[in-house]
């Protein structure tokens, strides 16, 4: 009987620990992401409001992904080529980044905090380790995360046409802006 009670107690405290862990987790699935292609003749950007992100402030774990088919470059022909020829979104639907914060986020500090994350950026099945600087702002409702970094198409085996000049930059600038809200169990 004593073991039984002890067991219940441990289970209960473990569950409340789970709750604690969860209150340090911030998530959202409708963040903003854009890529900017700056070529000599043409600059264009693709945007999406379906960036999904998660930061676990306690463990420092960071996880973001985007369904690449939701990117919109304001030109449907280009979007179609982007999905089918360059990104192959039916085969590789997501671009994702999973990693860890290099320094902790202080939830009690208002104002902007500079952070760095180290992790793996994956696109088209190709993984690349990256360190990305970001700006974090603790708000009443959640945490706002902004970051900018660059990727090279070559690194992800995206072949740009060579026969005819095409207005696509080898280096693409990525910007994200998302407010992550405290994760609550349903």
């Amino acid at each position: 009987m004593r073991i039984h009670l002890l067991m219940l107690w441990v289970l209960f405290s473990l569950l409340s620990l789970t709750e604690d862990a969860r209150s340090q987790v911030f998530v959202h699935t409708e963040g903003y992401v854009e890529f900017i292609s700056t070529a000599p003749m043409l600059e264009f950007k693709g945007v999406s409001n379906h960036l999904a992100g998660m930061i676990d402030v306690e463990t420092g774990e960071v996880d973001f992904y985007i369904d690449l088919a939701t990117l919109d470059t304001d030109n449907r022909r280009r979007d179609r080529d982007m999905r089918q020829v360059y990104l192959e979104t039916d085969r590789y639907p997501f671009a994702e980044f999973s990693g860890n914060l290099k320094s902790a986020i202080d939830l009690n500090e208002s104002g902007e905090q500079q952070v760095q994350v180290v992790g793996i950026f994956t696109m088209r099945g190709i993984e690349k380790e990256m360190t990305i600087p970001g700006l974090v702002e603790v708000k009443e409702s959640g945490i706002r995360v902004q970051a900018q970094w660059e990727i090279r198409l070559e690194d992800f085996n995206i072949d740009r046409p060579r026969i005819v000049f095409y207005e696509l930059s080898e280096v693409q600038t990525i910007n994200i802006d998302i407010i992550l809200f405290p994760y609550e169990e349903e």
């Binding site: 862990a21 987790v25 998660m54 676990d56 996880d63 369904d67 994702e96």
Partner: peptide, 14 residues
């Protein structure tokens, strides 16, 4: 606990 949210579930929008 360890697996609570280590990664988001990957879901396609459409």
């Amino acid at each position: 606990i360890q697996d609570v949210m280590a990664q988001l579930q990957r879901e396609r929008v459409v």
